[in-house]
């Protein structure tokens, strides 16, 4: 590689990293946070078997999982713009990512809720607690623990999916790299560099996951029953 290429890589590094720190990460964390609220709500509605609301939740999951994320982004930004609702690209991205991720995570959490032994719920009732109290203190914490690896997987997936937001004019890392590449025609080094930065982000997340799993597993010990 020529010295000029190295110089380009070095020079573009911060230019790509900054939208990563200012856009990709906030977009991911904000959307994932909202997605978790949606997911827990939707999972609980199904677990509690609430009529009507449950059907609405199934419909939501069916539609979101059955349509491409990219199409959802276009509807959320260009589509809404078209009918006079313009919320700006960042808000549109947050909206679409959280609704999309919420549907997938709802299924993860529902599965984990159902895997918590029914006896935990029954014991809670016998102690005089009501459904919501048992959920918040007993069942959800246990379900969350077992769903944790899968949820973290979704989070890591989402970091990379945010690159799709470039399609609706959000200036995140991918958009920025495209701009630089368009000017310099150095596609290979620039996109490799971009891939490397995503890899760094996800590596950090993997460390966080490992550390959190250790913290969360305090009540599961070897042996016993």
């Amino acid at each position: 590689m020529t010295a000029a290429t190295w110089e380009l890589i070095l020079e573009s590094f911060t230019k790509i990293l900054i939208p990563g720190l200012l856009m990709t990460i906030p977009l991911t964390l904000l959307s994932f946070g909202i997605a978790m609220v949606i997911a827990v709500t939707v999972a609980l509605i199904q677990y509690a078997d609430i009529p009507v609301l449950k059907q609405i939740c199934r419909f939501y999951i069916w539609v979101i999982r059955g349509t491409p994320l990219l199409v959802q982004l276009y509807i959320g930004f260009f589509g809404l713009n078209n009918i006079g609702i313009s919320i700006g690209p960042f808000a549109a991205a947050v909206l679409v990512f959280s609704i999309n991720e919420g549907a997938y995570c709802a299924e993860t959490i529902r599965g984990s809720l159902e895997a918590v032994p029914k006896g935990q719920l029954e014991a809670g009732y016998c102690c005089g607690m009501n459904f919501l109290q048992i959920m918040t203190h007993i069942v959800l914490p246990q379900a969350f623990r077992s769903a944790f690896p899968a949820l973290f997987n979704s989070l890591i997936g989402m970091v990379k999916d945010t690159s799709l937001a470039s399609n609706i004019t959000v200036t995140e890392m991918f958009q920025k790299t495209m701009q630089i590449a368009g000017r310099t025609y150095k596609f290979m080094p620039l996109y490799l560099e971009l891939a490397f930065i995503y890899l760094m982000f996800c590596t950090v997340l993997t460390w966080v996951q490992r550390w959190s799993e250790k913290k969360l597993s305090h009540y599961e010990t070897q042996g016993g029953r």
């Binding site: 032994p117 935990q120 014991a123 809670g124 102690c127 607690m129 109290q133 203190h137 007993i138 246990q142």
Partner: peptide
């Protein structure tokens, strides 16, 4: 099969009905 709350210690298992429900 006991059904102790798996994510709670022995003392928490005993006191949950008091602190949470009551």
């Amino acid at each position: 099969n006991y059904n102790l709350f798996a994510n709670k210690t022995a003392i928490e298992n005993v006191t949950m009905g008091l602190t949470v429900a009551r």
